[in-house]
Design a protein around this nucleic acid. Structure first.
Length: 561
RNA sequence: CCGCUCGUAGCUCAGAUGGAUAGAGUACCGCCCUCCGAAGGCGGUGGUCGCGCGUUCGAAUCGCGCCGAGCGGGCCA
């Protein structure tokens, strides 16, 4: 609707140019806003104020000229000039009502667009090291990353979900030593416990499983415990597989699936790290200093150069990252989005610098990043501390068990990623009106319930009659709801473009509120069949949009609760 | 010391491209079920948008400078 109106106005502006009322410079894009105050109509534009200076006319005079040149159309019922020069449009009710039949016709596809044109995009998220269960921070990454994928899919992209895990670094050695110590009967405070070892009780679970000779089937690997507490290599393999399986179970409980699990170790075994390093050396962006090999990241905006190969010979962590991202590029992903915790933001400059130094034709600024800030968990009015090393921390699975998958997903995705998040367990657990998840789901269930009642009361729901009688929808609650429904496609497009899934969560809360308010004000199941079916058409359309939006969030839309 | 993110109602947070009287939830105080699910609705109290300067018709939004918080800045990841 906005777009149609913007095009209409653009046509008028071109006509005014032809008439010499406007200069023939390039015209700015016509901005159409939703109004906050109903007295200002449904939509408004500031175009007269924007162009006033160029036209050499007062904004209100220019606005009058624009309105005077508006051709007849079936979109706008009335237009006013207001305030300093806004043009306020009152949308014709036929145009407003049309959204209902559009929703019912498009159903699950309502809100989808083809902005991505079927192009490939890879989203990498979670990417937790296999050294422990997923914690709340990973959960936020999982919720945001998965919703980004769903948004991109809804807007015409072909999405690949990828999980990268570090199975080759120092942390894995630490994990293996910790499990071995447990297998040898040591505790975290005993003599001989590895320095900085993982102290969590789950380490003991891994050790006991290893000693019992359990078979582990993880997403991408299968290992049997060798039982020998002195075989460090066997323990390492077993521990990685065990914790990978734990993470698989966490993700499954969260309803997050990946297309690819990418092992850091494969970058080494396939020579991709060495190849990347050789290319960087050949391109002249490296130098030896103090026995280490350095990358001139300062050539690409970093504030200091970074060590690539340590004095003792191993690579620093960002080197395999660079090789990994080169591999992504070579797999044909011209668009890549990495969702990570903001505590890793310093790697962005290094990875991008390394990729530029490779001279592989990768555009500057590739790949994209979405960084989420920390999560604080509150329970019983107190902060639950998260400390992996100390062993006591809230896992994602704890949260899912406490609050349910739907509430956990909703809470973790409902705030802007750039904001720190306070996860209130008591609120998420509440099956009450305090809880926004239940509030939205209840709106959906309520419409389902009304339809069940319609059957029982022999007041049948007739879609064709409903769509033919939409002009019966005249109350302010109904026009509010119609306006909200018409905005949904724009919400999806904006959320996908800006990579901000929380926009959908906020929108759904408002949509649910509009439905509840209407429900309380009007009876749907009335004797008058035309009115009843018109209202049911709007209710069913609202249910569809609630369902579509919840689908973007990965939250279920129950028929009863 | 430097970089990134943030600072909006008592609390948790929205406010895309600068727009009209800054919003929602929660908390607190009142109302509304002989009626489709009260897991709901309606109304009220509550604000120097951290502070200052600037840009302009107009700034919570953009720029600069402070103040405060979180996270980074290591041959840790």
């Amino acid at each position: 609707m906005k777009q149609q109106l913007a095009e209409l106005i653009a046509t008028v502006l071109r006509q005014l140019q032809a008439e010499g009322i406007l200069p023939t410079d390039e015209l700015p894009a016509v901005q159409i806003d939703n109004t906050k105050d109903k007295a200002h109509g449904d939509l408004a534009t500031n175009i007269a104020m924007v162009l006033a200076k160029k036209a050499g006319k007062p904004p209100r005079e220019l606005a009058a000229a624009i309105l005077g040149a508006m051709p007849a159309n079936n979109l706008v019922a009335k237009a006013d000039i207001a305030g300093p020069g806004f043009i306020n449009f009152f949308i014709a009710s036929e145009a407003q009502l049309a959204v209902v039949s559009q929703i019912l016709a498009e159903a699950d596809r309502f809100g989808c667009v083809n902005a991505g044109k079927g192009e490939k995009v890879q989203v990498e998220f979670v990417s937790a090291n296999p050294t422990g269960p997923l914690h709340v921070g990973h959960g936020r990454g999982a919720a945001i990353g998965d919703c980004l994928c769903r948004l991109l899919e809804a807007t015409g992209w072909r999405v690949t979900r990828e999980f990268y895990y570090n199975d080759a670094g120092a942390q894995i050695g630490n994990l293996a030593r910790s499990v071995q110590a447990r297998a040898l009967g040591l505790g975290p405070d005993d003599h001989g416990w590895p320095e900085d070892g993982y102290r969590g009780e789950y380490i003991n679970d891994v050790a006991q499983s290893y000693l019992a000779g359990d078979r582990i089937d993880a997403d991408d690997q299968h290992v049997v415990g060798a039982k020998d507490p002195h075989d460090a290599e066997a323990i390492r393999h077993f521990a990685v597989a065990y914790l990978r399986r734990e993470q698989d179970l966490d993700l499954k409980a969260f309803d997050v699936c990946f297309d690819t699990f990418y092992l850091e170790s494969s970058l080494y075994t396939e020579g991709k790290v060495d190849a990347a390093v050789e290319q960087l050396v050949a391109n002249g962006y490296t130098y030896e200093h103090d026995g280490a090999l350095w990358l001139k990241t300062t050539a690409f905006g970093d504030d200091k150069d970074r060590v690539m190969r340590k004095t003792e010979g191993g690579y620093t962590y960002f080197v395999p990252d660079v090789a990994y991202h080169l591999d992504k590029w070579q797999r044909g992903f011209t668009r890549v989005i990495n969702e990570q915790g903001a505590d890793h933001h310093s790697t962005i400059t290094r990875v991008r610098a390394g990729l530029q130094a490779l001279k592989a034709g990768i555009p500057d600024g590739w790949p994209d990043y979405v960084l989420h800030q920390m999560v604080t968990v509150m329970r019983g009015g107190e902060e639950v501390k998260i400390s992996k090393r100390a062993g006591s921390y809230v896992t994602l699975r704890d949260l899912i068990e406490w609050c349910g998958r739907d509430a956990t997903r909703y809470f973790l995705v409902s705030r802007a990623a750039t904001s720190q998040l306070v996860f209130d367990v008591d609120l998420a657990v509440a099956k009450s009106n305090d809880n926004p998840v239940y509030y939205i789901q209840y709106a959906h269930a309520r419409v389902c319930s009304v339809l069940r009642q319609a059957d029982e009361k022999q007041l049948p729901w007739d879609q064709a009659q409903g769509l033919a009688s939409l002009e019966q929808l005249t109350t302010t609650h109904e026009t509010d709801l119609l306006n909200m429904l018409a905005r949904y496609p724009e919400m999806v497009s904006v959320a996908a473009r800006d990579l901000t899934p929380h926009v959908i969560a906020q929108y759904l809360r408002e949509l649910a509120a509009a439905l509840h308010a209407w429900y309380n004000a009007e009876q749907f199941l009335v004797e008058d069949a035309a009115l009843r079916n018109a209202r049911l058409a709007l209710a069913v359309g609202t249910r569809q949009v609630l369902r579509n939006g919840l689908g973007i969030l990965g939250v279920s839309a129950p028929e009863s609760m």
